[in-house]
Design a protein around this nucleic acid. Sequence first.
DNA 1: AAGTGGCA
DNA 2: AAGC
Length: 215
Amino acid sequence: MIQSDLDLFGPQPQRLASHTVLLPGFALAETEPLLDALRPVLRAAPFRHMHTPGGLRMAVGLTNCGTLGWVSDEQGYRYSPNDPLSGKPWPALPPVLLALAARAAALAGFEGFVPDACLVNHYLPGTRLSLHQDRDERDFGQPIVSVSLGLPAVFLFGGLQRADKPRRIPLSHGDVLVWGGEDRLRFHGVLPIKPGVHPRMGERRINLTLRKAGP
DNA sequence: AAGTGGCA
DNA sequence: AAGC
């Protein structure tokens, strides 16, 4: 045989840590419905650059959909039901995205995941996201589901202390990463995006991060 | 050249 | 400090 017979079944889930699973290409068959669903979201709530509580501009453009959206300003990090740009509620979480997240979470061992927030991050070549924890959600028992679209990225997946040496996880268009349980508060980030052009997405990466933020 | 540490 |  030329390669492993396993290749006939497509890329297999990879367990990166006890409660962390990479599902290579899991969203590939649904990228078009996802992008169709994203278009009206971005019309209603365009990407914008938020600022850290210290007043520094974040390199990623971001927006949200769902009943809650992650925001950052001089007041700090928090979830808000309204888009500070429009004053209106964030656009609804598209059902196709909710369903995808629930299936991915279940595959990773998190049954009954019903996200109420999706942070949408926009990366141009050179954009990075420094090491941080997702800790603004109410229930750390709920996992995080991350969907990668467009240009590839190197995801940094660290430990519970900032100084823990992060692993480098290559992420491609259509990959889905799920982490929760004892991995829920691991520091993570994204290295600067390498210049390039994705055949479908152009010179950008979009990351959809689904969470259960509220009660 | 990363990886850390330290910082409002 | 999800930045420098």
